[in-house]
């Protein structure tokens, strides 16, 4: 009976007869996801990266900021510096570990913020429809018309370098696509007969959105948004590379790629390491997003 009463917190479910429960939607999602080995592998990689980011101070063997010119650009496999050192003699392993923090944050945070804002805009536009929809969506389209890289660079350039400004500009970049998807899905759901039936039962718009719309639109929007995480990471790295995002000496992968590019002929492997990390992380997020899409049976 615990499962029943947890569903209905405000009253003890004693008087209600037990019923056969179907495994819900999420049980099906988990079952389908469980069959997708590639997506699980990607999920594990993402989880490891997350753990690395959280426990960076414990995992990093050295101070990522402490460098000495005397040990510049050591190759991979050097004693004490398993992944070599960078152009200022800082331990690459430690810097890559700390870099996970920045990269994950730059990948995930803008997408989460854009997911919140974009969904809100899109769902309102989609549910209200009519002229409101046109007004909102055409404004969104103006932003959407710019290539995302260009928009991110322009905004960051205007706001000035720095992590916060990079986060803001990336968020702005991702709001239009998410809002568009949210609007499209909501418009679809809004025209389903069950929403009509809910209106016919006399429910208010907010109740209908809460009970009938959100559950059916958040999934597809979420899946779409997870696919943007890798884009966000790459854009963030690009901003850092251009000197518009994270500033030295912070160990962000994109920035590291930039500063190490001069060493590409001396220590090609070391110089490529941050790029490899960006590649692995973004592809893992993409595979994970694909797996979620299949498991959630979403057609975006």
């Amino acid at each position: 009976m615990t499962s029943l009463s947890s569903l209905m917190p405000q009253d003890p479910a004693k008087t209600i007869a037990p019923i056969e429960k179907s495994p819900g939607y999420w049980a099906g999602v988990i079952r389908r996801f469980g069959k997708d080995k590639l997506a699980i592998a990607a999920g594990i990689v993402v989880l490891i990266l997350l753990l690395i980011a959280v426990f960076a101070p414990l995992l990093a063997p050295m101070d990522p900021y402490a460098g000495r010119t005397i040990r510049r650009l050591r190759p991979v496999g050097t004693d004490g510096f398993p992944l070599g050192t960078d152009e200022l003699g800082r331990d690459m392993l430690s810097r890559l570990i700390y870099g996970a923090r920045y990269s994950l944050m730059m990948g995930v945070a803008p997408v989460i913020m854009a997911f919140g804002i974009g969904s809100l805009i899109g769902i309102i536009a989609g549910y209200v429809g009519g002229k409101t929809n046109t007004a909102i969506m055409r404004t969104i389209d103006v932003f959407y018309a710019f290539p995302s890289v260009l928009l991110a660079v322009a905004l960051s350039g205007a706001l000035g370098a720095g992590i916060q400004n990079a986060l803001v500009s990336l968020t702005v970049v991702f709001i239009p696509p998410i809002a568009r998807v949210a609007e499209a899905v909501t418009t679809q759901v809004r025209n389903r007969d069950y929403v009509e039936a809910a209106r016919a039962s006399g429910a208010k718009a907010l109740t209908i959105i809460r009970v009938h719309v959100l559950g059916n639109v958040l999934g597809p929007i979420f899946v779409y948004a997870t696919g943007l995480i890798s884009v966000s990471m790459i854009l963030a790295s690009g901003l850092s590379f251009l000197g518009l995002g994270v500033r030295p000496p912070e160990p962000e992968w994109g920035l590291m790629l930039n500063t190490l590019r001069t060493a590409i002929y001396n220590q090609p492997l070391v110089a490529a390491l941050p790029g490899m990390m960006i590649f692995i992380t973004s592809i893992s997020f993409n595979v994970l997003a694909d797996g979620l899409r299949n498991a959630m049976d979403v057609k975006v």
């Binding site: 009253d11 008087t15 389903r192 069950y194 039936a197 006399g202 429910a203 109740t207 009970v211 059916n216």
Partner: peptide, 25 residues
């Protein structure tokens, strides 16, 4: 199309009365 795919049958039927103030149980 006229049933919300994410709601159980009883929740779908009970939605209307709840809108009109009938307690959930």
């Amino acid at each position: 199309a006229s049933l919300n795919p994410r709601l159980t049958i009883e929740s779908s039927i009970a939605f209307g009365p709840q809108v009109h103030g009938v307690p959930q149980r």
